[in-house]
Amino acid sequence: MAQESGAAQPGGDAPLLSRLVLELIGALVVLGFGATVIWGALEHEVGWGEDGPQAGTLPFWLGLVAMLAAVVIAIQALRKSEVLGAQVMLGRKAAQQSAAFLLPIAALVALAVPLGLYLAMGIYLFGMVMWHGHGLKAAVITAVSAILFNWVAFEYWFMLPLPKGPIEAWLGLA
């Protein structure tokens, strides 16, 4: 369903990014990635030695091919700029919804190690469920059952301990 969601934009959403702009951003990212790879490859021998390619050879050429492909993609996009410029790929509301979903994940990731993953997931789930207006009861049930289920599953069944923080230490569980 991924491919389809771009084609049909829900009506009433103010346009933010056209396909053209997004294609060019994509090409720019690939260009930057290619340059980074080449930069990294140049720390090694990139030539063709007696025994064939050296440590840097493959990454060097990969970076070069990526940069070339990025240029071709950008040119292809610019040649169709009128068509692509009219295609709205991302509306303002859609972007807000995605960002509002992405930023809490970033918070979860940032808190997972210092606070421990159990506490971080509890806060994250509680916050998300509350914020979407499902009420305190639903939020507490979701957060607590997730923590308990994962604790039993990962600490006992799979024997694959997850990161723990000050709370677990204070409770004497870590």
């Binding site: 997972a112 997931m121 990962f154």
Partner: peptide
């Protein structure tokens, strides 16, 4: 179940797996 509850749960599953 509302997707706004299911989606954060999927995120937690993904995070745990990435850690493991």
């Amino acid at each position: 179940l509302p997707f706004t509850i299911v989606a954060p749960l999927i995120v937690v599953v993904c995070t745990i797996s990435a850690w493991s």
